[in-house]
Design a binder for these strands. Structure first.
Lengths: 226, 226
DNA sequence: CCAACGCTTCGATTACGGTCGAACTATGAA
DNA sequence: TTCATAGTTCGACCGTAATCGAAGCGTTGG
């Protein structure tokens, strides 16, 4: 009865509709200002401010002041995973907020999960790397094999720079549309931004959808075959 | 703003302290009656009844009537995973309800997660099976290799019976104390109950702790070396 | 058939938290 | 300096939901 961490507190934080809207908006990975989050959630700036204070105190979001703006983002990958997890059971128990619209297909195909690629193409990338032994699963941690290292370097990833960071290089993250893993961690983030840099893909404004160009699709299929 | 599943609803369900207490109590895997859950959460039976109705409507728990008792249990493994996930971020953000007591060590060593073995020994079992190629990871689904099949059969598991069931045989489940995977699914459940059957281990009453006998510890270490 | 038990429903109370208007602070621009 | 914009704090209002006492059902066991 009194053992274990206080799950009620943080669940309650997510449990408010306004805050849930803000958090899902932050799942895009971008840091958003208070007013952006307010309009996203359909509330006034004042209430958004109090909500943000609570979310920060609860360790769910981190804030960073820049000039007269205050940017908020999810505190870490764990939070993103938790939210995806929540979406999974919410979707499975049939409690959808809106009927599956035309947007859903695009969301299921390719979307950003916090900061890396998720959806069909995300799992395809993951599976392709796994199948070619570039990604290795030892215990719980994911590792990049030597062939994998040269592969991503050839793609233009600055691997030494990533390995210097404190954050884990590879992590797997579970999807809610697909029930499968995709690649998270700093490498997952770097790969997505590289795709955008190469002009293969482009994030759709005000959404989590990632749209691949026709060139990008063929290049992606070439580099990550099944 | 209006895309995706309704995470606020189910997060709000978990967000109430009383309900959170009930859910964590159900993490033991046992089905509990309404009165048991009421005392567990420190509330009266009436309120527990209304809470249970809401949890059932939300798809978090399933209820089963037996005589004049009504047994409630977690609806499925996904819920258990979600709760463990929540405990993880709650623990990480430092929002512990109680200071880490003497009970915590036992919890970290071996505990039941919904219905299978978690904690140190859970991850050890998982890693040991993986290291000996008895457990195989293809895509997202876990598979039991032929050597693995004969191994668990030798342990006394009725494998054909398990394979007949609709539920997946192997699944991995993430731990909140250890940040690593352990074996869930019907095989995970069967293994734990087999350990208890063999007298290796015994669940501690009114807790999620699993206590291994000295015989059980040596046998376990023999069967699941690292 | 009656009493005990487990659970549910109803009704009333209460309290907590979300919400916004208004006033205030801080930063940047003119 | 003055104005505009971004965000915070305060105060008051309001609604929702948690809670429990009391009464009502079923089921079990004598």
């Amino acid at each position: 009865m009194k053992e274990g961490p206080d799950i009620a507190h943080i669940a309650a934080l997510i449990g408010d509709p306004a805050r849930a809207n803000m958090l899902t908006a932050l799942m895009s990975g971008k840091a958003l200002t208070a007013t952006e989050l307010a309009t996203e959630a359909g509330i006034t700036v004042q209430t958004a401010s109090t909500h943000l204070a609570k979310l920060a105190e609860g360790g769910l979001v981190e804030t960073r002041k820049q000039g007269r703006h205050k940017y908020s983002s999810l505190a870490n990958d764990d939070i993103a995973t938790l939210l995806e997890n929540l979406m999974g059971v919410a979707a499975k128990t049939g409690h959808l907020r809106t009927r599956t619209g035309p947007k859903d297909a695009a969301l299921r195909k390719a979307r950003v999960c916090y900061n890396h690629l998720a959806g069909d193409m995300g799992t395809q990338m993951y599976d392709s790397l796994r199948a070619r032994d570039m990604l290795h699963h030892s215990g719980e941690t994911l590792h990049l094999s030597p062939t994998g290292e040269s592969f991503v370097t050839a793609l233009g990833i600055d691997l030494p720079h990533l390995q210097h960071q404190r954050a884990p290089l590879c992590r797997d993250c579970l999807d809610w549309s697909e029930r499968r893993s995709h690649l998270a961690g700093s490498l997952g983030r770097a790969l997505l931004s590289r795709f955008i840099e190469l002009g293969w893909a482009k994030p759709v404004a005000d959404s989590r959808v990632i749209r691949f160009s026709s060139l990008g699709s063929t290049e992606f299929a070439k580099h990550f075959p099944l």
